[in-house]
Design a protein around this nucleic acid. Structure first.
Ligand SMILES: [Zn+2]
Ligand SMILES: [Zn+2]
Ligand SMILES: [Zn+2]
Ligand SMILES: [Zn+2]
Lengths: 127, 127
DNA sequence: CGTGCTAATGATAATCGTTGTCAAAAGTAA
DNA sequence: TTACTTTTGACAACGATTATCATTAGCACG
């Protein structure tokens, strides 16, 4: 039984405020700057819980950070991410899902899953 | 000017021996076990160089390790990877490349690039 | 072949994101 | 309230990777 704490709510609320993927450290810094006294370890734990509960998506950045985002939809989807500002657009494409499954089965691989992220520069960041 | 050393050759040769993605630490352990006295930092450097020269592909594992593979083709491609043994199949799919570019341009994102990896269990590992 | 210059090596320390520890604080049910 | 447990948070510990830096060794060039 997971207990309700203001810390978890604060993390979830702030994550939903963000327009793109953010790191645990970044979110913690934001909260502290806003005057919310919360421990870094607590933010790490809250984000990990959100991700494992399916309430947040996560991905690994190039420099080895885990980034999180509260997505608008519960269904499986992918992301188009600005590599500059992190701004993110959710992408759904049944054709690509089908392709991935076919590639796996064509090679007799089972229990398929995939990592598909598209990066670029958003209009704003392209100046 | 990059100088030729037996260490770099040893790393490249051993990487080409592998059937899938391997970590720097794993490759170093393999070399040392084979009696090749080589420093860990040197293996890290050699792999990073191979990747930046386009002679090896790299990806981030779930647990935050950078994995490397000497690929058979120089052209852009993706991978179907066994999450158990690391065995890897190279995948080319022009349709997916086109899709990724279209997703980016539809949203006015420029300088598109993508991360597309398919994971599963290979026939051997599925028992 | 030496000689000189400089890149490469490797043992080790340092870095950095993340997780483990554990005593204190707080949610929850009765 | 009380009793029971989960959660928190300061801080230590971890693990992959990178920085240091003295030593070694490519690689011209004479
Ligand atoms: Zn942007
Ligand atoms: Zn998908
Ligand atoms: Zn396998
Ligand atoms: Zn591609």
């Amino acid at each position: 039984m997971r207990r309700k704490t203001w810390q978890r709510d604060a993390v979830r609320d702030e994550l939903e405020q963000q327009s793109g993927f953010v790191s645990a450290q970044g979110l913690h810094a934001t909260l502290v700057t806003q005057g919310t006294a919360i421990g870094l370890a607590t933010v790490y734990r809250a984000l990990a819980d959100l991700a494992s509960d399916g309430d947040a998506d996560s991905l690994q950045s190039d420099d080895g950070e885990t980034l999180y985002r509260a997505c608008r939809t519960d269904s499986h989807h992918h992301h188009l991410i600005c590599r500059q500002c992190g701004r993110t657009v959710e992408i759904e494409a049944a054709a690509v899902e089908k392709w991935a499954r076919k590639v796996a089965s064509d090679n007799s691989f089972t229990h398929e899953y995939h990592v598909i992220d598209i990066f670029g520069l958003c209009p704003d960041c392209a100046k």
